[in-house]
Simulated assay, not measured.
Amino acid sequence: MEEITEGVNNINLTGDLHKKNRIQVSNTKKPLFFYVNLAKRYMQQHNEVELSALGMAIATVVTVAEILKNNGLAVEKKIMTSTVDMRDESRGRPVQKAKIEILLGKTENFDELMAAAAEERDIVDGEEQS
């Protein structure tokens, strides 16, 4: 019995760790660069970030991933696609929604690029005040 409890506790721990660096993207709630900046912060903290979306929000996730890659901040580690059964509220019947999960990792010069961007912001802020 003790082994089972220990196993369940380990499952919960790894599940919680995995969720800490996952961003579930919606295409209605937040602007695109909210997700870009959040992903940068998650990569700073956890070295990688998982972007996840359903249906119409998939385009937003792909765009966020491409912005991070094109700016030299992220490398693609894994892309997973699937379908998820959901209930259609208007018709009350089950529907399948497309799902994507993109795992991104920091590039070698991620920290350097982030430091340069922070320094640039400080210079701009300093000039505006004088």
Rank of each mutant, 00 (worst) to 15 (best):
I23T: 08
I23F: 01
I23W: 03
Q24E: 15
S26N: 12
N27G: 07
T28D: 08
K29Y: 12
K30Q: 08
P31I: 11
L32C: 01
F33C: 09
F33Q: 09
F34Y: 13
F34W: 14
Y35V: 01
Y35Q: 07
Y35R: 06
Y35D: 04
V36H: 14
V36S: 13
L38I: 05
A39P: 01
Y42A: 13
M43N: 06
M43F: 06
Q44L: 15
Q45L: 15
Q45M: 15
H46C: 04
N47F: 01
E48V: 03
E48Y: 09
E48A: 06
V49K: 04
V49S: 00
V49C: 00
E50H: 07
E50Y: 02
E50T: 04
E50P: 05
L51S: 04
L51I: 02
L51G: 05
L51A: 03
L51N: 07
S52N: 11
S52I: 02
S52L: 06
S52E: 12
A53R: 03
L54C: 00
G55P: 11
G55I: 06
M56K: 10
M56G: 05
A57C: 02
A57H: 00
I58N: 01
A59V: 07
T60M: 11
T60C: 09
V62T: 13
T63G: 05
V64R: 03
V64N: 01
V64S: 01
V64I: 12
A65F: 12
E66A: 01
E66W: 01
E66Q: 12
I67N: 10
L68G: 01
L68K: 04
L68T: 01
K69M: 11
N70R: 04
N70F: 11
N70E: 13
N71K: 11
G72K: 04
G72N: 04
G72Q: 08
G72D: 02
L73V: 03
A74S: 12
A74F: 02
V75C: 03
V75M: 06
E76A: 08
E76D: 13
K78P: 04
K78C: 14
K78T: 00
I79P: 01
I79S: 07
I79R: 14
I79Q: 09
T81D: 10
T81A: 10
S82M: 07
S82W: 12
T83W: 10
V84W: 11
V84A: 05
D88S: 11
D88C: 11
D88W: 09
D88H: 05
E89H: 14
S90L: 15
S90Q: 14
S90A: 15
S90P: 08
R91F: 15
R91Y: 14
R91I: 13
G92L: 10
R93S: 15
P94T: 14
P94R: 13
P94N: 06
P94C: 05
V95R: 12
Q96N: 08
K97N: 10
K97I: 07
K97Y: 06
K97H: 07
A98Q: 13
K99T: 03
K99I: 00
